[in-house]
């Protein structure tokens, strides 16, 4: 998939997942890449930026095995942002699908 499209898509996915439940980085990467092909490493710079911008907070929780997991939790500001982001996304995909259907009908 085109890199520029993918970067925006990953952001949408992260907001969609975190508004349902808190996750650690690996979990997010795993969930997203089970649906679309991504470079999982890009998720960490994205999470750092969105955390610094106040959309997420982090906390550590011990795990039964291995290192403590760093969980990301969506903030009130993040929930507001997610709403507008998902609206943009839905408008965009709806528009593109309509356009493609129109073009194929004309053939």
């Amino acid at each position: 998939m085109n890199i520029q499209i993918k970067k925006g898509v990953i952001e949408v996915c992260v907001f969609a997942i975190l508004s349902k439940k808190d996750c650690y980085g690996y979990e997010l990467a795993e969930t997203i890449s089970s649906h679309i092909e991504i470079s999982e490493g890009t998720i960490y710079p994205l999470l750092r930026r969105l955390t610094k911008e106040g959309y997420f907070t982090t906390y550590l929780r011990e795990s039964s095995e291995g290192p403590p997991r760093k969980y990301y939790k969506i903030t009130g500001q993040g929930i507001e942002y997610k709403k507008s982001l998902l609206k943009d996304w839905n408008d965009l995909t709806k528009g593109v699908i309509e356009l493609i259907e129109e073009c194929e009908r004309d053939e």
């Binding site: 690996y26 960490y44 750092r48 290192p67």
Partner: peptide, 16 residues
């Protein structure tokens, strides 16, 4: 350190 930690943890969790 924090950046490296994220990727180190990613490896540990993946191995598990």
């Amino acid at each position: 350190k924090e950046v490296m930690r994220d990727y180190e943890d990613h490896f540990s969790i993946g191995s598990e």
